[in-house]
Nucleic acid binder design. Structure first.
Lengths: 153, 153
DNA sequence: CACGATTGAGTTGTGCACAATTAAGTTGTG
DNA sequence: CACAACTTAATTGTGCACAACTCAATCGTG
């Protein structure tokens, strides 16, 4: 049990609120750029994961994005309807598994997608080194939280 | 136009993805704690804004949380249905404005809510000073992005 | 081999986010 | 005063997130 010594926690003083706001702000910056490709930010993340390594399973993609099948499945359905990926069930002899493969059209977005990440990075007002430091700090933060996830009383 | 010198942008190297993941992770840490109060994280943010200053308008709350009326209105409807706030239209002579007021029940959550922010801060694995530094860095980041929002080509 | 336990993907239901729109109320200007 | 421009909150529609669940396929053990 933690005693609350402070007065009212103020919104602007909360690190978690800053995180929540920053995350939405940067996705908002991606939005108009990704719109031209017909993608949302989570869809873009899936494509990034596939550009890195094509033919991954749904579970593997979920692990990479930290999303469960309830989020990933419909997301993949939309990406498939848009013609950017193709799903194949049982492609490795296990009829439960579905592997996801880039179409020509999905693979072709890679260079434009890469440009977009550069544009957004540039708009952050931070140097490359600062961005790396921030990223590492955030990953450290996420890691710490995940290890304590169920441990909070 | 920014040239893409790099190879495929890797998911784990992206600061924006780290931000997106960290934000969801910390909200996930709040979730079981807020569940006991019958609140979601955005609902908790609204209450924090009201504990800080009660009787704010919908627009004012939206500015504080960086959310538009399309998000805030239904959120307030649920908070009202749960008995934590009350909405009053035209309370200041302007029939367009709706002011939002804490009920006794909503005001009573403040100390338990404060405790929760402390618990979550403690689970971050960071010192108070580190958290403040991270928060300031994130707010700086958000500010930089907001000024460049429409300026990206 | 039988069969309970587990795995993998998908579905359902709720609650954000956000764009676009609506509708009522207010303000500014001629 | 008239009326167009603006403000304010709410609604509609789409797409995440996430919990809870379903169901088929596979695995582990006797």
């Amino acid at each position: 049990m933690v005693l609350c010594m402070d007065a009212t926690p103020r919104l602007r003083e909360q690190a978690c609120f800053a995180l929540y706001t920053a995350s939405r702000a940067v996705i908002g910056l991606y939005r108009p750029l990704l719109d031209r490709l017909g993608l949302t930010y989570p869809q873009f993340l899936v494509l990034m994961a596939l550009w890195e390594s094509d033919g991954r399973t749904v579970t593997d993609l979920g692990d990479a994005l930290q999303l469960d099948s309830g989020t990933v499945s419909p997301l993949l359905k939309r990406l498939e309807a848009a013609g950017f990926v193709e799903r194949r069930r049982g492609s490795n002899g296990d009829e439960r598994r579905v592997t996801v493969h880039l179409t020509e059209s999905g693979a072709a977005l890679e260079s434009r997608g890469c440009e977009i990440t550069q544009v957004v990075g540039g708009a952050s007002g931070m140097s490359h080194d600062e961005l790396i430091a921030l990223r590492d700090k955030l990953n450290e933060f996420t890691q710490a939280i995940r290890t304590r996830e169920t441990a909070t009383e």
